[in-house]
Design a protein around this nucleic acid. Structure first.
Lengths: 118, 118
DNA sequence: ATTTAGTACTATGTAATACCAAGTATTATT
DNA sequence: AATAATACTTGGTATTACATAGTACTAAAT
């Protein structure tokens, strides 16, 4: 069982949240998003990102417009819809709950570890 | 797009980590694990848990023994192997990294939100 | 002008896991 | 003996991350 695989599974469901979060600051096209995520040390690849953006658009959470580029082919700029912003808030809560849940589970172990340190 | 589905996706890859964490305190059988997780407000259902436990056992991270019960049918008690403990530490790191990454992405938004609060 | 390179996006198939539902098996209770 | 509770097994569905191959547009090189 590989840790890389475990990491990829952990990313499932989180990427959507991160992408909505990135877009909540303002519109961006795919490479922007990839770079923002990379800066946060979350690697997301094209084969994942594009279908994900499409799903979010189809779900009404994103909208996009085409924009000519001076540096190459035209780009698809995405931005959050109002529904996207609402959903992002729900994801905020869900993520926080999950993090707290994991922490709760781990805290029982740390209490044990701490007592053996003392 | 349903928040419940997003939550389930977020749980992907995390359940394994939580289960290993629960078992790091000592052996347990399936219902124990379900209750520990429920206490932490992570709902995991049998159809998920049993195959997951089997996968972890097949990967050498868990071992189990059968134990008669005075309250019903016999139970399968699982415990971490040495490899399981090592893997759990790697998952600890991976989870922490992911949490930090998400926080990093969100921090850029919170800075924006904070400045508009002031 | 043509070819090559870089950039951006699309589509498809694979792998993995959470979940639902149905079922089997063992023991306790009625 | 029949029913209920408990514990585990099995198989199918849905979803998403990823790898890969390809198309399309523009810029740079030839």
């Amino acid at each position: 069982m590989k840790i890389e695989n475990a990491k990829a599974q952990m990313r499932k469901g989180v990427l959507e949240y991160c992408i909505l979060s990135v877009l909540s600051r303002g519109d961006a096209y795919a490479s922007d998003i990839i770079n923002e995520m990379k800066e946060a040390r979350i690697i997301v690849v094209e084969g994942t990102l594009y279908p994900l953006l499409t799903r979010l658009k189809n779900a009404g959470l994103l909208s996009y417009r085409w924009e000519e580029s001076t540096q190459g082919p035209p780009r698809k700029y995405y931005e959050l819809t109002d529904r996207g912003r609402e959903f992002l808030q729900e994801l905020d809560l869900s993520w926080t709950e999950l993090v707290n849940s994991v922490q709760f589970i781990n805290s029982k172990n740390q209490n044990h570890e701490e007592s053996s340190d003392h």
